[in-house]
């Protein structure tokens, strides 16, 4: 015998039978990402205190226009001169994080409550997902990845420069300061995050069904997959540390903190 079948009533916003603190992770994401956005925006508009000797803040790297040792070109075109150098480069790492598969899932929950958490009622009935504009543009992630890989090389160079201090004779001498380690940690964490990207995993070998007979691709795919398993941890650690690196350089440049030389 067939009988009419109906779904249970749709739950309202925040309604759930869950007993755990389901609201805590999205709240944490909301607070941390909002704080980072606020700080990064403030720091980008400062246009000052972003370099200290051989250290350069990652928010301003690559420094396209500026004096040596960090600037690539000495003079900016007149129409760009009044703009903070950070604003020229930050859209690329920001776009990489904004379109990142991990962050997407996290901020859809934290900022848009879509859903607020697993098996918790939503505020809206309508839903388009990532099928149509604007969210279909998230598919641009792999293009931001290409830029992120270039930025990684630049930041690695900055970290290397962080070990070379000017001496009294006007030359450069190898040394280690706390700032050198801060910049190195920054590039290591960003490397762990960028090289574990889902799009990179696809591009290095994931798009193939057969990796047999392709040892280089197999190794690359396995390495990216290994980093990808901890993608969430790399994402948060690198986000925190990139902000801290800027704080460190800024504080040293402002004379608030003193860069302690280890060697």
């Amino acid at each position: 015998m067939t009988q009419p079948v109906v779904q249970l009533r749709r739950r309202g916003f925040g309604e759930t039978m869950r007993r755990d603190a389901w609201w805590l992770p999205p709240l944490g994401v909301f607070v941390v990402l909002s704080s980072f956005l606020a700080y990064a925006t403030w720091a980008a508009f400062q246009n000052a205190n972003y370099e200290y000797g051989n250290y350069l803040s990652p928010f301003y790297s690559p420094l396209l226009f500026g004096p040596p040792p960090h600037g690539w070109f000495a003079r900016a075109p007149r129409w760009l001169a009044s703009i903070s150098p950070a604003l020229l480069i930050l859209p690329f790492p920001a776009g990489f994080r904004f379109t990142c598969y991990y962050y997407r899932g996290a901020y859809y929950k934290a900022f848009w409550a879509d859903p607020p958490s697993c098996s918790v009622g939503e505020p809206r009935k309508g839903y388009l997902g990532e099928r149509t504009l604007p969210l279909v543009l998230q598919n641009v992630h792999r293009y931001f990845l290409y830029f992120a890989l270039l930025f990684l090389l630049v930041l690695a160079h900055d970290a290397w420069e962080g070990y070379h201090f000017a001496d009294a004779a006007g030359g450069m001498r190898f040394g280690i300061g706390v700032g050198s380690l801060v910049l190195t940690t920054n590039v290591v964490l960003l490397g762990g995050y960028t090289l574990g990207c889902h799009s990179l995993r696809h591009l290095v070998g994931g798009y193939l069904d057969r990796l047999a007979g392709r040892p280089a691709r197999r190794t690359a795919y396995d390495c990216v997959s290994c980093l990808n398993r901890g993608h969430m941890n790399w994402a948060w650690a690198s986000l925190f540390w990139v902000a801290f690196t800027d704080v460190y350089v800024r504080m040293c440049a402002m004379g608030v903190w003193h860069d302690w030389r280890i060697l």
């Binding site: 991990y102 899932g105 859809y108 098996s119 997902g129 990532e130 099928r131 149509t132 969210l135």
Partner: peptide
Amino acid sequence: HGIGYCNITKC
């Protein structure tokens, strides 16, 4: 199959 509807919540 509407794969674009998935917004990667990982639930």
